[in-house]
Amino acid sequence: MYPSNAPPSPSAPVQAAYGQPPMAQYATGVPQPPMVSYVKWSSGLCGCTDDVSNCCMTCWCPCITFGQIAEIVDEGATCSSCAVHGTLYTLLLLLTGRCQAIYSCTVRSKMRQQYRLADEPCNDCIVHCCCEPCALCQEYRELNNRGFNMSRGWEGNMGMARQNQGVQMPPFAQAEMKR
């Protein structure tokens, strides 16, 4: 009748941390983090020819494609423009010959986390080290398919979003009340 300070019995249905039932815990009683569902990429890694103009741009000047991707993924953060990312990418390419793949891998990982994309077909670093142009084309297409106009950059896309939100709908006319 009165609440007791005794711990609940093991058979009592108690919700664990994260809202999981007790069966979702490890044997030690430590709660597991909630399950995260991942979505598939909108196009495959080898779908470069789906956007031929981007494919050509990425093959001849990957720094531009990477800069556009990084600016959108960084959401226009301070000192995070297409030119800054593209220049850093180019310097890494010219000075090291391969370390730009590690830099672009970090942007891909951040993009996957933001949009909860699956780690397909393999780890981000392996994708970028083995096939850098294909990975950049896939990331570009993904952002493009999500509604970003890549040539506008972050601020241009946000300006268009604000402008589209300003469109007012005509007021809803209510019907007459009848008895």
Rank of each mutant, 00 (worst) to 15 (best):
G44M: 01
C56S: 11
V36M: 09
T49M: 12
N54G: 01
W41T: 04
M57W: 07
C59T: 06
L45M: 13
D51S: 14
P34C: 05
F66I: 08
C46V: 09
M57E: 13
Q68T: 08
W41R: 02
T49I: 08
T58N: 09
I64M: 09
T65F: 06
N54Q: 15
K40R: 11
Q68W: 07
I64Q: 11
G44T: 04
M57L: 15
C59M: 14
T65S: 15
P62W: 00
P62I: 04
M57P: 00
G47N: 12
P34V: 09
S37I: 10
C55Y: 04
C56F: 14
P62E: 05
S43F: 01
S42D: 03
C55T: 10
N54C: 13
D51F: 11
G44H: 00
G67W: 03
C46D: 11
D51Q: 05
C48N: 04
S43I: 01
T49D: 09
G67C: 14
D50L: 05
S43M: 02
W60I: 11
G44D: 02
V36G: 05
F66K: 02
V39S: 08
D51N: 13
V39R: 15
G47Y: 03
D50Q: 07
T49F: 14
S43D: 03
C46Q: 12
T65Y: 03
I64H: 06
G47L: 01
V36Y: 06
Q68L: 08
Q68N: 11
C59W: 15
W60D: 12
P34D: 08
C55H: 06
Y38M: 13
G44I: 01
G67I: 08
C61S: 11
W60G: 15
K40I: 02
C56Y: 04
C56P: 00
V52M: 14
S37L: 12
S42C: 14
T58D: 00
M57Q: 13
Q68R: 12
Q68C: 08
G44K: 00
P34E: 10
K40G: 05
W41M: 05
W60M: 15
T65I: 00
C61G: 06
S43T: 07
G67R: 10
T65V: 02
S37M: 11
T65G: 07
P62G: 09
C56G: 05
N54F: 06
C56H: 05
W60L: 15
C48P: 05
C61R: 03
C48H: 03
D50V: 04
G47E: 08
C61M: 13
S53N: 06
V39K: 13
T49C: 14
Y38F: 04
D50G: 02
I64W: 10
D51G: 07
V52P: 12
G47I: 03
Q68V: 06
G44R: 01
D51K: 09
V52Y: 12
C48Q: 05
T58P: 07
W41Y: 05
L45T: 06
Y38A: 05
S37C: 02
F66G: 00
K40C: 00
V52W: 09
V39L: 05
T58Y: 03
C48I: 04
V52S: 13
K40Y: 01
P62T: 05
K40W: 06
F66S: 07
T65R: 07
F66L: 04
G67N: 07
W41V: 03
D50P: 01
N54P: 00
N54T: 14
M57K: 14
I64C: 11
S42I: 01
